[in-house]
């Protein structure tokens, strides 16, 4: 248990790396819980996960800011690009290019306003966020603006919650101290989720009228 962790740290693996290795299973479990038990929609498992990782890298303030910016720009762009009657994939590529240009401009503004913190953020997570915005646009086309917005907000909230959970020192300490137990526990929890047949929280609300109307069988 702790001996493996000690083995790694004494041989040069930074502690934070080990924590973050275990972070992915925890974040994944949190997202699964939100979906299976609560009924929070979000864009599947990967997108909230990657968003959380992006937040971990560039900080939550800039992370949320960039997330919102990419989504908003993507939506505005979609509205204009529709009129051009281009095919789907090229349209998406154009959207990504435009968002990238906007982020460039954002950086320029940051220099102008002296936001040195912003300029120095790692670029890779930013790229991830830009790429993720494609999914949002695709969903907009599929389900309409309103539903897409709701799912996006749910994804954002999920990512934020995961972020705070993972950066919680208490949890980090436990995870470092008992890595094996944590993993076993997570496996057990996920297996349990996989077999759970109960109603999701949102379904209690959705089927409220049906529940009220149900007649119990006579004995």
């Amino acid at each position: 248990m702790t001996s493996i962790v000690q083995y790694m740290t004494t041989h040069g693996v930074p502690e934070l790396s080990l924590v973050f290795f275990l972070v992915i299973p925890i974040a994944a479990t949190v997202i699964t819980f939100a979906r299976q038990i609560l009924g929070v929609k979000s864009f599947g498992l990967y997108i909230p996960l990657i968003t959380t990782l992006a937040f971990l890298s560039i900080g939550i303030k800039y992370g949320v800011f960039l997330f919102v910016i990419t989504v908003v720009i993507g939506s505005i762009l979609r509205f204009f690009l529709r009129k051009t009657h281009l095919l789907y994939l090229p349209r998406t590529a154009l959207t990504l290019i435009t968002i990238t240009i906007c982020v460039y401009i954002l950086f320029a503004f940051a220099i102008y306003f002296g936001e040195t913190n912003f300029i120095q953020i790692s670029v890779f997570p930013v790229l991830l966020l830009i790429i993720l915005s494609e999914k949002f646009i695709a969903t907009q086309i599929r389900l309409g603006n309103k539903k897409a917005t709701i799912i996006t907000i749910e994804t954002l909230i999920l990512s934020i919650v995961s972020y705070y959970l993972i950066t919680w020192p208490f949890l980090q300490n436990i995870v470092l101290a008992y890595p094996l137990i944590t993993i076993v526990l997570l496996i057990v929890i996920n297996v349990w989720f996989g077999k759970w047949e109960g109603l999701r929280l949102t379904e209690y609300f959705r089927f409220d009228k049906v529940i009220k109307r149900t007649k119990l069988p006579k004995k």
Binding site: K195, W196, R200, E203, F207, T214
Partner: peptide, 19 residues
């Protein structure tokens, strides 16, 4: 408990997929 018995009769996504 009557409420919960009633909710058990409703089919949710989890039950639909698993059962």
């Amino acid at each position: 408990s009557r409420y919960f018995t009633k909710t058990q009769q409703v089919l949710g996504i989890n039950e639909r997929n698993i059962k």
